[in-house]
Design a protein around this nucleic acid. Structure first.
Length: 258
DNA sequence: ATGGTCGTTGCACGA
């Protein structure tokens, strides 16, 4: 069994005790982290090494930052885009091959508001991801792009669709960008196992949203068919959103046959 | 009640 996880930790410095505890309890093989919010020099690679994980980090400082941890090897690491295009000023993407699976940890831009330049950046970023996949010559091989997509794929993925009218995360262009990844061949692995509405991975810290059930499912494990068909289960660990100093995101887990 | 809370940094801003 290969257990793959994506988790936006909202500062690895602030979250390290919770991350260590969770890794010990859940024993994932490959972990994609987002929003580490630290420079590479500050990344606690030695802490993870002592827990049995090799790691690769692409950080920038106070914002963004993505990492991959692996117990099953970590090869051919690529930080950021490798399409020969302009550099992304933000550290939002890292690739590695772990246990025979090409894995990406992605932190898709938030977008902020529909009339904000950051929203244009978000849509461009997603199109660049699609083009990167399109260019791959090994589309038939196992590949997963895991991360905080900052998009709720469908209305059933938000607590109240009407609340988000005119806002980011549910707008049609964002959802179309996600569907374009699926049109290339990616599958939202979690939805292979759960059809219900009201299943979320993120809850705002404000207003008691977690306890009120006001969340969104924006953290996704997208997999190519050859990987998705090996999936045996997927879940969100809501318990990780409880307790002392939680991230505002819960980890999303997917298990695969070897 | 036109807000709320975190995390960063540094007394504001991003999510």
């Amino acid at each position: 069994m290969l257990r793959l996880v994506t988790w936006n930790v909202n500062s690895l410095k602030a979250r390290l005790p919770r991350v260590q505890e969770w890794l010990t309890e859940n024993a994932p093989d490959v972990v994609c982290l987002q929003e580490t919010k630290m420079k590479d020099e500050a990344f606690p690679a030695e802490v993870f090494r002592e827990m049995g994980y090799e790691s690769a980090h692409h950080g920038q400082g106070q914002w963004n930052g993505v990492a991959i941890l692996s117990k099953v090897g970590i090869d051919d690491v690529v930080a950021g885009w490798d399409d020969g295009g302009p550099e992304d000023g933000d550290a939002r993407l890292i690739w590695a091959t772990c246990g025979g699976v090409r894995v990406a940890s992605a932190y898709v831009p938030n977008g902020r508001a529909l009339d904000n330049d950051h929203y244009t950046y978000k849509l461009g970023w997603l199109e660049r991801l699609r083009a990167t996949l399109e260019r791959r010559e090994d589309a038939g091989s196992p590949l997963a792009v895991c991360g905080d997509y900052n998009i709720a794929p469908e209305d059933r993925d938000v607590w109240d669709p009407a609340h988000f009218t005119g806002m980011t995360h549910t707008s049609e262009p964002e959802r179309a960008a996600l569907r374009a990844l699926e049109a290339w061949g990616m599958e939202d692995v979690y939805r292979r196992f759960h059809d219900e509405a009201g299943l979320f991975s993120w809850w705002d810290y404000r207003g008691g949203d977690f306890h009120q059930g006001r969340g969104m499912r924006i953290d996704l494990i997208l997999a190519t068919p050859s990987l998705a068909e090996r999936a045996t289960g997927s879940f969100v660990d809501r318990d990780a959103r409880k307790g002392e100093k939680p991230s505002d995101h819960a980890p999303v887990v997917a298990d695969f046959d070897e």
